[in-house]
Design a protein around this nucleic acid. Structure first.
Lengths: 234, 234
DNA sequence: CGTGTGTTTGATCGCTTTCAAGTTCAGTGG
DNA sequence: CCACTGAACTTGAAAGCGATCAAACACACG
């Protein structure tokens, strides 16, 4: 019989993430081989077509998953936040590139250790399944945005998505709120399938219409959430 | 102790799909409440924001998952084939619309029955997790296509994807091959985030270049797979 | 043989990209 | 304290690609 390992006790991943599915013994096994790492924005975690030997849990910050074409065109295909699990079980090689978007703290552990835990724990597998299903839902919503929305609608949708993530209670009703964008214009463009110029122009347009205000380029005040929702095209 | 139920014995879903994860007893439970249905092309299975009470396995044919904007713009966000599982576990309401693209045969069963089996069977949950991860991989590849490829590259990518699905051994090397497109021009457009006119023009262009031939609008001969791959933009 | 649906082709329009300057701002050194 | 530098961002003008509008064509079905 073992206790919850000390570093895990107050960890958000145990309280809200994948680790909460493990019993004390399993958690000890994982904790013994796990490492905590702090990373600065823009650090590479894994590259496309590269073998993976470790998985991780995000303790803080945002990680972007990207895919790119041979001529350099790039598309962000996933965004993950604390306390998400980071990795693609049952596959030797990564099919995406993972990079930190902001400063990030990770708790990483060997792939093999984790995969054997999956095979033992119905509850862990269940959490993983639920997270994967949520990611699939999110990427399907994003496919609608990428395929069918205009630049204006894409940018409005993005701002609403980030506001939802960055503000404690999300966007409720018509309350104004303000937050920092976790991504550069280039990253926003790569997320929306646009160019930086188009993103910038659409932001300027929303500002000219009094829907948002931009003090610094990264700090956004959402003045009129209702009109922004209209712009996002449902 | 029970035998494999008679209708399940030769079923592809048991051999290659989700049902193979069940033991004889579990399979009997599921079979007792399951129904086989044949559907014509274009049948609605479930609508966006509608409560779901049954899940299913595709025995033959193709099912498309779509999402749409309030003004009618539509995007296909998933394509599923035999022997895929059809449903979104752990969610009361569907966030997508599901329609048959071709003639389809389904084996459907109550949501509750299936979800209780998931909670019992590590193996079933594992199959589901693996299918969900594959779908997530596929939708991430498609996000790159939607966000960053040109119309020409989108159509070429689509043809390669379908050829892969429709031909026994897929597209290998430079061998010519032929197959029927399982979708109309409108559906292809909705899959690629284009209009029917653009899809048609790109197909005509590929035909004019001798890369493909179209006898009827649905029957395609892939004459030069290598050049088609070049057109798909990697 | 006509009707209707799905597809192709043509002409024009408009949005997003591209190319090119300008601006802002944080960091650095005089 | 202020000018310098470079990166990120904004703005402008022009070009191009895919959308839109419109018409012709093809094939299935009564």
């Amino acid at each position: 019989m073992s206790q919850i390992p000390a570093p895990c006790r107050a960890c958000d991943a145990r309280l809200h993430g994948i680790c909460g599915a493990l019993d004390a013994t399993q958690q000890t096994v994982l904790a013994r081989s796990s490492t905590r790492r702090s990373l600065s924005p823009g650090s590479a975690l894994i590259n496309e077509a590269q073998p993976v030997d470790r998985y991780a849990v995000i303790l803080s910050g945002a990680v972007k998953l990207t895919k790119s074409l041979s001529d350099g065109r790039e598309q962000i295909v996933g965004l993950q936040f604390s306390p998400d699990f980071l990795g693609r079980p049952f596959q030797e090689e990564s099919i995406v590139t993972a990079q930190t978007a902001t400063a990030v703290v990770l708790c990483s552990f060997p792939r093999k250790t984790f995969e054997s835990l999956i095979m033992q724990s119905l509850l862990l597998e269940n959490r993983l399944l639920r997270q994967t299903l949520s990611e699939l839902d999110a990427s399907r919503s994003w496919m609608l945005t990428l395929g069918r929305k205009t630049a204006q609608e894409k940018v409005a949708s993005y701002l609403l998505l980030i506001a939802e993530r960055c503000c404690v209670d999300g966007v409720q009703g018509s309350e104004p709120l303000s937050f920092d964008l976790p991504m550069s214009r280039l990253e926003i463009a790569d997320y929306l399938g646009l160019t930086i110029e188009t993103v910038s122009r659409q932001l300027s347009k929303l500002r000219a219409e009094g829907i948002i205000a931009l003090r610094q380029s990264r700090h956004l005040q959402l003045i009129d959430p209702v009109r922004l929702k209209v712009r996002s095209g449902t």
